[in-house]
Design a protein around this nucleic acid. Sequence first.
DNA 1: TCGACGTTGACACCGAGTGCCAATCTTGGC
DNA 2: GCCAAGATTGGCACTCGGTGTCAACGTCGA
Lengths: 216, 216
Amino acid sequence: MNETSGTLRDHAREAVRAEVQRQAWLLFSEHGYESTTVDRIAAASGMSRRTFFRYFASKDDLVLARMVESGDAVVAALVARPAAESPWQALRASFQSIVDAQVAHADRSRALQVMLRDEPAVRATVEEWRRRWTALLTPAVAARLESAEGRAEGRAEGRAEGRAEGRADDDTRLRAEALVRSALECLESAQDAWAEREDGDLDRLVDVTMGAVAPL
Amino acid sequence: MNETSGTLRDHAREAVRAEVQRQAWLLFSEHGYESTTVDRIAAASGMSRRTFFRYFASKDDLVLARMVESGDAVVAALVARPAAESPWQALRASFQSIVDAQVAHADRSRALQVMLRDEPAVRATVEEWRRRWTALLTPAVAARLESAEGRAEGRAEGRAEGRAEGRADDDTRLRAEALVRSALECLESAQDAWAEREDGDLDRLVDVTMGAVAPL
DNA sequence: TCGACGTTGACACCGAGTGCCAATCTTGGC
DNA sequence: GCCAAGATTGGCACTCGGTGTCAACGTCGA
């Protein structure tokens, strides 16, 4: 049970980070975010306050780290969707892994969701997380838009184009970003509603929100 | 030039707040948000640090106060739109006052927009501002959706309804919230793009983003 | 003139986050 | 086994945002 020394340190570091996260989430769910001081998290993890800040850049970082992991899965799901699907449909389908994960651990997820929504101190982190997901998803959606336009051009190419190609590219990126950000808001609206109503079906709620904004 | 003593205090208070805001924005635009300490703002405004916190609940409050004012104008514009307009079209039209105001003071607005986008410390405040606007706009959009459904029901009432009326109401509110949040994201996407590219036409960019998500 | 009330400034305090330094532990070379 | 190099750790002091407290000051009405 020995490993290369280089990865050994990393492994140890990851193990410590995971344990600190576990302890922190226990404290968060019990006392809320703001009321849980870094000293308490450090003490619960058996380390000094100063050492905690060597593992996590900030208290927010504890929250952010959780989110970032799932982002890669979503973008992978998005690029795997069939090209014929509209961007909106593809985005909806890519969210399925998140939806399934939350439904699988409904109790924990609901508590977490409420915390993210109601604790003002965490919201900057949520913003940051949304930002990163947007940056990840936008290129994939832009590619989808471009290929769709390519097909459209091939079909009917009598349009007056060639005047502002660079701007058209910028517009494509911008339209992709708007789509991604809107879709993420729909997802979050559905998640918030789901966290409140005990009975809801998150899958259906996401269909409702996204279907309300654009046809699925 | 004397007034009732009750409003006199309020007037003085408002004047002080305005002056502090002015000084703060000067310092922000010169040194950025984080680097501008409350001590410096207080000193520039000729008051003690403690007194500053009696006029503004927090440093963020300086930023938030600016945003909140324009919210009422948007919701007023929304309810004034003709009932025949789709929610999405009505939202787009309601944003016009914001767009016009920003275009009128393009330089200041661009600098502000960049600061809001790039300074992580302010983003929680932006979130809060978005939240309040959502709360203001959602009921108006929900009413619009309901009346539209009422008309649709009147037209074709052979549907199997009456089973889950309460849930249908919840769904309407949820769909309205999704629409509002998506529209605000489109607005912000356009604003961010506009702040970056010197040449852009903000009006057109908002049309582009909102048109990309749903037909206008 | 006196007293009530609101405003102000100063001080002490808390929590998040950082720089610095000394103690300690691990690792590799001899 | 031993010792030096380097990484990890903990303690300390500091900055900054934010809050509670208290004494001093000014303004108003009686």
